[in-house]
Design a protein around this nucleic acid. Structure first.
Length: 595
DNA sequence: ATAGGGTTAG
């Protein structure tokens, strides 16, 4: 490599300081070229001053050769703040937050005074770290140096707070901003979506105009993402059309916007709309393909997911770890154990670091094996993991044990989960359900006591439906909706009709040690049933699908209920639960009762 | 010579 480019470089004699600087500016080819230039400079006897070295360093960093850059940097006498900044930024932009933060630490301990450019970089690195402590320390520095009023610094502080779950502080930082510019709005909207406050993001979007800020394409991406999370298809499409008509996005030129749209369609269960958009897109990257594959997999169309995956391997970009997760999900949902194993082995064999199996791939495999009934193999799979299994992996095993009613192995998983994720109620609920289905009421009571002692709160289940751009929320047994009377009347009607078609209420999933009538009463008013009844009341257009989003997983009886309703009302029901979609059509579900 | 915000999985 060195020899190859050596003839492009001038001989040492011809080189002056000016020509060296000019050469450096034009030398954006390869790090090797730059390194050679450096050694040439050293042989010239020219005094290689900081200014020249700085140029060299910047070029190296921009090319991503941090090792050589760092060597140069460490050899420099009192590098200027600008150089510290550049290196800190380089690390943070190239997913090396640890290096970025430790360089900042070094800077601080040497007494180099940071300027207003330093903190946005290092704060970004701090928010990429798994723990918030470094960020807190840097925050203190920001205040110490009196830099917290720079908009850029404030934005990064806000994002960091939001990423570590401190939405209150993020909110405060946004609200108290003196100059709230477009970037601040976009950052806050995006963080709202990331922490799961999608409806807040939509509210913010509506406030932008009155506040005198014109949204741009970045805003649109955030808002489309919010619509996906909420399952608001109508709203999402309206916002996209608005953005087109306002010239905020032009055609399909912005791939990120199109990807966000694609994802929104998939998250709303509209695989058809997603596919036709995909077919029309002028440019597709790995995210485009992954979004499609994951989308198909979660929507229960494993065939399409796997077909696209092989199409991608033939004529698309290289798959990454997310794409493979999509392929594994497709296998897990379709019960294609052999195919799934093959994908997993391909990942292990791959030389690319980017597609080595991660924890979520292991969790997916455990789910797949466990669901197919190979519980022992799933357990062995966990013990063979190169890294410490996390709650996702044990949770997958517990879920499979619940399906196959294997209390013994389920207990093993639950014990791990009690240590790894004591605050997640759903795991304890699963265990409790397993005890209950085995009639072990004593164990159920002991577990309940333990849950109460620890103060673990169950997440309340709810379902949402979008109608005319508004979101309607329902809880179990909820009567607060203005249409409550009509909804319950509709529900009665449905039950009466369904019973004629052979519907029998399945109460097993409730797993409470209460009288049968009471169980039945609770099951019959689950939130998803109310949401469906509501949609039937207000929207009688036969060909429009009923779209319901549920925050937890749906129970067996509701699943059965949906099948019957789809049949007797001739309406398609698209239900997104916590982990996947169910498309009900004419009495059957896309998940083939395998979920 | 350096500035902050955006899309996929869990």
């Amino acid at each position: 490599m060195l020899r190859k480019c050596s003839h492009n470089l001038p001989t040492p004699i011809a080189l002056t300081k000016q020509s060296a600087a000019a050469l450096l500016r034009s030398c954006s080819g390869s790090p090797d070229q730059l390194k050679q230039l450096h050694s040439v400079l050293l042989t010239t006897g020219l005094s290689v001053k900081n200014s020249l070295l700085t140029g060299l360093l910047v070029a190296l960093i921009n090319l991503g050769d941090f090792r050589y850059a760092r060597k140069l940097f460490d050899g420099m006498h009192k590098p200027r703040v600008f150089l510290w900044n550049t290196l800190i930024r380089g690390y943070s932009k190239n997913e090396m937050p640890v290096e970025s933060v430790s360089l900042y630490k070094q800077m601080a301990s040497l007494g180099v005074r940071p300027d207003e450019f330093t903190h946005p970089f290092v704060l970004k690195a701090c928010s990429d770290l798994p723990e918030p402590w470094a960020g807190c320390a840097v925050h203190a520095h920001v205040v110490k140096h009196g830099l917290e009023f720079f908009t850029e610094v404030r934005n990064e502080l806000m994002i960091m707070c939001a990423k570590f779950g401190d939405v209150g502080s993020a909110d405060y930082l946004f609200g108290s901003m003196i100059e709230r510019d477009l970037v601040a709005w976009n950052a806050f909207i995006a963080t709202c979506v990331q922490v799961g406050h999608a409806s807040r993001a939509l509210t913010l979007f509506r406030e932008m105009g009155p506040a005198g800020i014109r949204p741009d394409a970045v805003t649109v991406v955030g808002v489309l993402s919010a619509c996906g999370q909420l399952g608001c298809l109508e709203t999402g499409e309206k916002i996209y059309e608005y953005a087109r008509s306002e010239g905020i996005v032009i055609g399909s030129s912005n791939m990120i916007v199109e990807n966000a749209r694609l994802d929104m369609y998939m998250k709303c269960g509209s695989t058809g709309k997603a596919r036709s958009l995909f077919n029309q897109m002028p440019h597709r990257n790995v995210i485009t393909w992954s979004t499609m594959i994951v989308g198909y997999a979660t929507n229960g169309d494993s065939e399409q997911a796997l077909a696209l995956f092989s199409k991608m391997q033939n004529s698309g970009p290289s798959p990454n770890h997310v794409t493979y997760l999509g392929a594994l999900l497709a296998c897990a949902h379709a019960g294609l154990v052999e195919q799934g194993r093959a994908f997993f082995n391909a990942m292990v064999r791959s030389r690319s670091k980017d597609i080595q199996p991660r924890k979520e791939h292991y969790a997916c495999m455990v789910d797949m094996l466990g669901r197919a009934g190979n519980l022992e193999e799933a357990y062995e799979f966990i013990t063979s993991m190169p890294t410490e299994p996390d709650s996702g992996v044990w949770g997958a095993l517990l879920g499979a044990c619940a399906i196959h009613k294997n209390v013994k192995l389920g207990q093993v998983a639950a014990d791990k989960l009690f240590l790894l994720a004591p605050e997640v109620a759903s795991y304890q609920v699963l265990l409790s359900n397993m005890y209950a289905s085995g009639g072990r009421w004593g164990s159920v009571d002991r577990l309940r006591l333990r849950i109460r002692k620890k103060g673990i709160k169950k997440v309340m289940g709810y379902s949402t439906v979008e109608f005319n751009g508004e979101i309607h929320v329902f809880y179990r047994g909820d009567r607060s909706h203005p249409q409550a009377r009509n909804i319950y009347q509709k529900l009665e009607e449905l039950y009466a009709k369904m019973k004629g078609f052979g519907y029998i209420q399945e109460v097993g999933s409730v797993y409470h040690d209460v009288e049968v009538e009471e169980k039945e009463a609770m099951t019959s008013v689950h939130s998803e049933k109310l949401a469906i009844a509501f949609t039937l009341v207000i929207n009688e257009v036969p060909e429009s699908p009923i779209r319901v989003i549920k925050n937890l997983r749906t129970c067996e009886d509701c699943h059965n209920f949906c099948k019957f309703v789809s049949r007797i009302s001739m309406r398609e029901i698209v239900m997104r639960d916590k982990s996947r979609f169910h498309h009900f059509r004419d009495g059957t579900c896309s998940c083939k009762d395998f979920w």
